[in-house]
Simulated scan of single mutants.
Amino acid sequence: MTTPRDLLIVSMDVPSERPVEQGDLSLALAGAELADLLAAGAAGLDGDRVVPLPRRDTGDRLLDQAAASFDDRPPYESVADWLWRRGEGLAGAYIDALDAEGQLTGRRHRWMPARGDRKAPADTPARRAAAERWSSHDPVIAGLAAAVGIETEPGAPLTAPDDDALVTVLATVNDAVTELEAVRQRRRIESAAFDNIWRAP
């Protein structure tokens, strides 16, 4: 299994104080893809720019799509710009992929798109592997999960990866999720103000 797939399973299995927003998860899944592609040698970082390296198949369709989406012309794309572009609708794509592979069962999860029934992870080796990675406090999974509001148990360590490129990815995911929440807050305020105008005598 890949980091994005593990992250999706963790997001469905581990309780959180607030529902996971699908937009936040999509950004985190894009960050998980980038982390895997960096580890696979399919990309590198030059500062905050994603530099594609000679293509190699990862064996995962969605990861291969992610690698194919890199801007291959200098000055290349920033990590933040790539996350926003790649992340659009990505949670739904991963849900559909796991569903098609028989990794999900039952009805769709509470934050999943309305189409279809509610789903949850099936009891599969993939789910057990994701749970083991989570319980081992893997810094990439833990950092991405924290970005979307899923915290490790109290007292559990949250350590940074020992790779500067991965630290950059995690920090950029956090910044993007924070920015997205600010956009949601602004829209809620504007909507409330608009409603108050119409309700005013």
Rank of each mutant, 00 (worst) to 15 (best):
R184A: 08
A32H: 08
V183G: 07
A80N: 09
R110G: 07
A100L: 01
V79L: 11
I150G: 00
A114R: 15
T3F: 10
L38H: 09
E181Q: 12
G89P: 04
S69W: 13
D36L: 04
W82H: 14
P201C: 01
A30R: 11
W198Y: 14
A147G: 03
S136F: 03
N174P: 01
Q22T: 13
W82I: 03
L62S: 09
V51E: 07
R108C: 05
D24A: 14
G31Q: 07
R73W: 14
R85N: 13
P54L: 08
L83S: 06
E88I: 06
V173R: 06
D24E: 10
T58K: 08
A39I: 03
L90K: 08
N196Q: 14
L90D: 12
A28E: 09
A120P: 00
E77H: 03
P54R: 11
D64M: 03
D175E: 10
A147F: 09
G87P: 01
P19R: 15
T168A: 09
A145E: 04
T2K: 02
G155Y: 06
R56P: 07
D46P: 10
L180C: 02
L45D: 05
R86W: 11
H137G: 00
A68M: 08
T159G: 02
T3V: 12
A42R: 14
P157H: 10
Y94Q: 11
W198E: 10
L29R: 06
W198R: 15
T3D: 01
L7S: 06
R108V: 08
D13A: 14
D64A: 02
R188Y: 12
P4K: 02
D195T: 12
P139K: 09
S11T: 09
H109W: 09
L29W: 08
T178W: 15
M1P: 10
A142R: 14
L29T: 12
H109T: 10
